[in-house]
Structures are given as structure tokens and as C-alpha cells.
Simulated assay, not measured.
Amino acid sequence: MDRLNRIWPPLLVIAAIVAIWWIVVEQSGSLIFPTPGQVAAGTMELARNGTLWEHIGASLLRVATGFLIAVLVALPLGLWVGRVDAAYRTLNPVFQILRPISPIAWIPIAILWFGVGDMAPVFLIFLASVFPMILQTAAGVHAIDGRYLRAAENFGVPRAKLYRQVIVPAVLPEILTGMRIGLGVAWLVVVAAEMIVRSSGLGYLIMDSRNAGNRYDLVVAAMIIIGLIGLGLDVLMRRLEELRGVRWRYGR
């Protein structure tokens, strides 16, 4: 019953938005902007011929690749920067300068370096997600109660064991928070990044549908699918954050 009470209010809001959308389009007599029925029909058309799944798969693969590379770079770098004061003082200003630069601004450079294939979007996704994870992880290390670190050092705990059994468990909530932020930004960026690729992805689908006969039903369908997948990814990360081993940390 509690789950039902949480679900039906947003469903009612969505239903109201769809109804208003339908009424406005019908009353305006628009010949270009699609109704919800036309969007649903366009989505079914893409689903039946398999095009929809190809575009979704291409986008998810690019996000997964760029995000995984970002995780492999950001987590050890964030742990090191957060633990070593000299590294933090040296590198934090650099990260703070690079972080606000929109990944979209890197598109010309990405094209120059990687062309218009898959590597350019992967590079942009990496840039979008790596800095939030580095900074969030480093902030989590700084928030660890120093008593635990000093106690481990006094007992001669090796550095590798200190990271594995003290620092990483303590900072895990912040790591997942950074991953959630990074994944959300990565999914946002992939749509713009795919507008420069040749033949696949939801971003490419939007541009191709617009250019190939003004198929705005497919444009809106792709936008809705992007939103739904983004919601699903956020829900998945929230579920990870709610795990008992993640919610617990030192000093709480």
C-alpha cells in the first residue's frame, strides 16, 4: 500500500500532462507537432523494425564505456587526492577549473582528436562524469574521522589494507553519490554528443528524424525514451545507495 501511495501521484501528474498535451495539439490544429497517439505510433514503428533497440543499445554502450573509464580513473585518483594533502592542494584547483567547463564545449576538440566515430562521444562522457566522482570521493576522504586513521597507523596497518578496510568503507556513500551525479551528467551529455556521430544512438535519432522529413513524432519519442532511461539509471543508483553496507560509515 505504501508503494502504491508513492506511485500514483506522479502517475496522475503524467496523465494530466499527456491529456493537456493532446488537447492543446488538437485545439491548435498543428500539422507539425505530434499528438501523444502519433508519438506512441512512431515508437511502435521503431520498435517493430528493430531500429529503436539499436539506437538505445548504442547509447547505453557509449555511456557504459565512458562511465567505466571515468570510474577507473576517478576512484583511485580521488582517494589519493583526498588522502595526500600536497596532492589535494596541487590538483584541486585544476579540477575546479576543468569541472565547470561544459562537455559540449569540448565537441570541436573531440571531433579534431577522434573524428565522428564512437570515441568522440565516449571521450565527452568520460569528461562529464570523471570530475564529479573525483571531487566527491576526495571530499569523502576528508570527512573521515581522523581517529580511525590515526588508530590504524598506530597499529602499523599497511597502506593497502588501510585503504581497503578503513578508507574505502568510510567513503563508500560519497563514492556512490559521485557516481550517481556522474552517471546522470553522462546520460545528459550522450544525447548531444551523439548528434555528431554517423549512424546510431538516441541523439543521432533525434537529428535524423528532424532532417529526414520532419518526423517530430520520432523526435518526441526519442526525448521521452531518453527521460525514461535516465529515470531508470537514477533509480538504480538510488537502490545502491540504500544498501546497508553503503549507508553505514565510520564516525556515525
Rank of each mutant, 00 (worst) to 15 (best):
G201L: 03
A221Y: 02
I7Q: 07
I224F: 13
T51S: 15
A70N: 07
D2E: 14
L236D: 05
A138M: 13
M195D: 06
I56E: 07
R159Y: 00
N214L: 13
G146C: 00
Y148I: 01
G37D: 11
A86D: 08
N92W: 01
L183T: 00
F123C: 07
A138I: 01
L4Y: 14
I224M: 11
V73L: 06
F114C: 06
L231P: 01
D217E: 13
E174Y: 15
I69P: 01
I111P: 08
A110V: 09
A222N: 11
G66W: 00
I167Q: 05
W8K: 11
I111T: 05
V39C: 07
E241I: 01
R159H: 01
Q96E: 14
L60S: 10
L176F: 15
L183R: 02
I134V: 11
V94Y: 10
A64V: 07
A139I: 03
V219A: 10
A47Y: 12
I20G: 06
F131A: 04
I101F: 10
R249T: 14
L68F: 13
I97P: 06
W21Q: 02
P121A: 04
Q96N: 15
G232I: 08
L60I: 12
F155I: 09
S28Q: 14
L231V: 09
P36H: 09
A70Q: 07
L162I: 06
P10F: 04
W187M: 11
V189T: 15
V185M: 10
